[in-house]
Design a protein around this nucleic acid. Structure first.
Lengths: 373, 373
DNA sequence: TTACAAAATGCCACCGGTTACATTGTGGCC
DNA sequence: GGCCACAATGTAACCGGTGGCATTTTGTAA
């Protein structure tokens, strides 16, 4: 009995070696301060009985920490709910945990899908998304962007079309050493910094589709020439036609502006031709919808009078009748990939650049069919 | 000659009083470090020959600084291009310069317009916008939001419908002491924290419009009952009708879901009634577009067979034919007001709460007209 | 000119993390 | 057992600002 007691005491004394049980101490701490107190690294260090430097090492996954120490500190962190202050961390690291999305794409659905994708890719990484719409024609465009990046010491930025095609901003980012990912329809540089949407392949699908349906007089409505995607979609479209021995007749080609109205206007022009085309590929859904409108105005309907194919597969493609056969562009996925790549970029883990991962695909709906006759 | 020299020397000596010319010193500094060096408060202090605390006072517009000192420091700041580091500042102030936008509105155009509006309101304030889409039905909804706010120590958040109508998140924000502005269709609390869009007044316009056109059999397609705006729009609509001695017949009322498809489906149902309504107010444009679709499917056209009025005045309202007569809701402006109010909220300058500032207005287009007969 | 309050400024610690470097513990080897 | 290399941890300064309080300067009345 006495021996047992002594033994116990002995144990108690021996545990002084590692102070008291860290788990108990952490729980006591949480008890004492209530559930809303936000702990700091100092609290963790005090509870664990180590210096804050050691806690810092655990946070940053330094290999220089003994396993036992690491796991104890880890437990404490879990129990008291510590998470390092991004501001303090950023101050020391000389960068923030903010990702900038710089864009000038006027299509709300593109923007929102892209944002959602980026956020998916950022999830649980401790980073947040800061949005920065811009206007490339503004005099202060570059300066604004630079200030945005430098003031917030952004972790990195993601550029979407058409800003992503602007070499000035890329040069600026490189100059100030800001990590960036460019999302574009085609590789514009070293693909470590690129996510490409392969619009050309999508255009090819559209071309194949109309060719296979038997169309011969085929038209195209482009976007503004300053939009690279429009160019790519056209190139691919022509490739798709060429596979079937067809080519685009310049008199059936018009320059639109990615807007509903331009699709309506250019579409009306094309419909007045004699003979008119039996199928038209519009470089985006918005214009395809305008084109359907033009048909209606002209007293015609798709697909019997004219097959219509769009590009993007946004909501509008299924908000009109007939619903638009279109090329689906995985915008959300692109955003996700961009975010993931950006994070890897900073970890020096040169991200493996799988080629052709994002390929748009055709979605057949009611707006296209075989030509009349 | 000698005197002159002495005089010069004398001046030089006398200026030791205020060290050397601050402007010259600042320019020399900028020369020495090149254009890309980012100055800190210490650089400014050193150049000005004062302590950083004084510079800090200038930055924060403390009245305790002599005018001369203030203007000298101001000049130096301009010349070397100093702007305080938000992270360091935030660390000391225990908050960041980030505004969160928490939203679950599925309409991309609403989201983008709102973001743009908020950014307009934030312009030149040194604050940035961090976006946080969420899902109110998720188990981790509250926890995610809380972590978002606390981790980034957000300056404040802006809530849009329908999160803005969720009392749980508001309670949480209040508990952790985070400033917030709720944007909603109607005042839900003390209006220091509210921006109201007065959807009821917009609905009233819609009601008046159809009543004035002479319609008697008038229908309504609502949004989900969980959306307050839908309720408000309906109330206003009924008021507008009532002004002309009309009331909404329950058999002409259907519950939609703010989606194109629901407009199409509920619209088809209403069109099959006999007698069918001669006018229908859809609680948003998306459903109004679906309703137009339903008309087309039924072989009918607007406005002769049916007048259609929508709400929002988003792109889709002019991307269909006939273009939709709709109630314009100034979403961008609401965002701007919310941002401004949030900034004022923190400055304690209780923002003056002009009532009825944001009133939706009717935009007449081709989808509405007098009833047949 | 002195006295003294008020205005203007400086000093130092601190916000919550980090890096550079010093120090202590540990195991292997002779 | 003693020496040494290396693993594990601690110390102090720093990132770029801020608060509290002490100190100096200024303006004004006696």
């Amino acid at each position: 009995m006495l021996a047992k007691l002594l033994c116990r005491e002995g144990q108690t004394v021996s545990t002084e070696d590692e102070a008291i049980d860290p788990v108990a101490a952490a729980e006591a701490w949480r008890q004492r301060y209530g559930p809303s107190k936000k702990p700091t690294i100092n609290d963790v260090a005090r509870i664990a009985g180590v210096s804050k430097r050691t806690v810092s090492r655990v946070i940053n996954k330094s290999p220089l920490v003994k396993d036992k120490t690491r796991s104890e500190i880890g437990k404490i962190i879990d129990i008291i709910g510590f998470s390092p202050d991004p501001q303090a961390r950023g101050l020391a690291f000389r960068h923030s945990y903010l990702i900038g999305m710089i864009y000038d794409n006027p299509n709300p659905q593109y923007v929102v899908n892209m944002q959602q994708g980026i956020l998916n890719g950022l999830k649980n990484s401790g980073h947040e998304l800061v949005v920065h719409p811009c206007n490339r024609d503004s005099d202060s465009f570059l300066q604004d962007a630079r200030q945005f990046v430098e003031r917030q010491k952004l972790f990195g930025v993601i550029l979407t079309p058409s800003v992503s095609e602007d070499e000035r901003i890329v040069a600026m980012l490189r100059e100030i050493g800001c990590a960036y990912i460019r999302i574009a329809s085609v590789a514009l540089e070293n693909n470590a910094n690129m996510i490409v949407s392969n619009d050309r392949l999508g255009g090819r699908e559209a071309g194949r589709h109309l060719a296979k349906l038997g169309h011969k007089r085929i038209g195209f409505i482009s976007g503004k020439p300053s939009f690279r995607s429009s160019h790519e979609r056209r190139l691919g479209f022509e490739e798709g036609l060429a596979e079937h021995g067809l080519e685009l007749d310049p008199k059936f080609v018009r320059e639109g502006a990615y807007t509903f109205q331009s699709g309506l206007d250019r579409g009306s022009e094309l419909l007045q031709l004699d003979p008119r085309p039996t199928a038209i590929f519009a470089a985006n859904d918005e214009m395809a919808a305008g084109l359907l409108q033009a048909l209606r105005v002209a007293g015609l309907t798709a697909p019997d009078a004219l097959s219509v194919v769009g590009f993007d597969d946004f909501q509008i493609a299924i908000s009109v009748w007939p619903r638009i056969t279109t090329v689906h562009s995985p915008v959300t996925r692109l955003g996700e990939l961009a975010a993931e790549k950006l994070l890897l970029l900073k970890e020096q883990e040169t991200p493996d650049t799988k080629e052709g991962e994002n390929v748009p695909w055709l979605v057949e709906r009611e707006s296209s069919g075989p030509p009349a006759n």
